[in-house]
Design a protein around this nucleic acid. Structure first.
Length: 292
DNA sequence: CTAGGATCCTGTCAGC
DNA sequence: TGCTGACAGGATCCTA
């Protein structure tokens, strides 16, 4: 999905455009995308917007909350006097709405909020506000990189010492917020090969990786999340992390901005993975085993 | 317990 | 043109 910076971008947009508005009506186009009773949402006012890792929570009056996870292809689009869209980037950001991928529609007093999701992996879930933090998924989330100490991260790596570091940092129960883009960007930033076994990282490398994760996600949040050129926010600015800041993601075949070598796309942990083969060398712990 | 693969679903693109 | 398989900004379930 949309990773932490994109969800943060949504949070900020909804806070600006939807906070204080009443939800007049909820229309569900896809039953799978909406969990819980929609009737109790109608007539409630949006009183708060929160984010837990990649999960968005919209708090409503009446002690009700909406927990939203965009997974791979979810988008939240507010369409009123202005349009504000964030999440999975696509042409839909500027389409007529609703469209083929619209799963849930929230009619507000002033405008409409759309939950779009091509692949239907995402969902909107109704739950009591005081149970949000007890939700199984939210409760399982680890700390975000800003809240985690290097030593704690290093210790966690030891518990998964035989897994490639990229697989480990994609696991939200180990460290929360990174997805496929920012995992690749963070590993490139600190020059660690994604296939390096987690147990092979030194404590110093663990700290550097943590710092890089913060750095790439901060850059993205500041630019409005990574999106494509068709994404234009209501204020006319574009979320353009990929164009401006991405060093490796979707840059295979292009020169590394650090050393000039050609960026490669490989497969790690079942995911497409982008590296500079020159800057990110794979160091093998088991080298001595091969002498047996 | 960990690690890895299949799976949910729709759409697009490369290769025949 | 039409078909086919691979793949996609995520997380869970199942297996060994």
């Amino acid at each position: 999905m949309p990773e932490l910076p994109e969800v943060e971008t949504i949070k900020r947009g909804l806070s600006k455009f939807c906070l204080g508005q009443k939800i007049r009506r909820v229309k569900i186009n896809c039953a799978k995308s909406f969990i819980g009773p929609s009737e109790i949402v109608e007539g409630q006012e949006i009183v708060g917007i929160r984010r837990f890792g990649k999960a968005l929570v919209i708090d409503l009056s009446g002690g009700v909350s909406l927990m939203i996870h965009l997974r791979m292809t979810g988008q939240m689009i507010y369409d009123g006097k202005e349009r504000y869209a964030a999440g999975h980037p696509s042409e839909n950001f500027v389409d007529k709405l609703p469209n083929r991928q619209t799963r849930v529609i929230f009619e507000l007093l002033d405008g409409t909020l759309y939950f779009n999701d091509q692949r239907k992996f995402g969902f909107v879930k109704v739950l009591p506000t005081d149970e949000v933090e007890e939700d199984k998924f939210i409760k399982s989330l680890a700390k975000e990189p800003w809240k985690m100490e290097g030593e704690e991260f290093y210790k966690k790596l030891q518990r998964h010492k035989n897994a490639p570091i990229k697989a480990v940092i994609l696991d939200q129960k180990i460290i929360c917020g990174l997805g496929n883009i920012y995992a690749d960007e963070a590993l490139y930033d600190c020059q660690i090969h994604p296939k390096t076994l987690a147990g092979d990282l030194s404590e110093k490398q663990a700290e550097e990786l943590l710092r890089s994760a913060r750095k790439v996600m901060e850059a993205s949040i500041n630019s409005g999340g990574s999106t494509m050129k068709t994404y234009v926010k209501a204020d006319g600015t574009k979320g353009d992390y990929l164009e401006k800041f991405a060093q490796v993601f979707r840059r295979e075949g292009q020169p590394c901005r650090r050393c000039g070598a050609e960026i490669e796309k490989i497969r790690v942990a079942g995911r497409g993975t982008h590296i500079c083969p020159q800057c990110q060398k794979l160091e093998c712990r088991k080298a001595e085993d091969e002498n047996d």
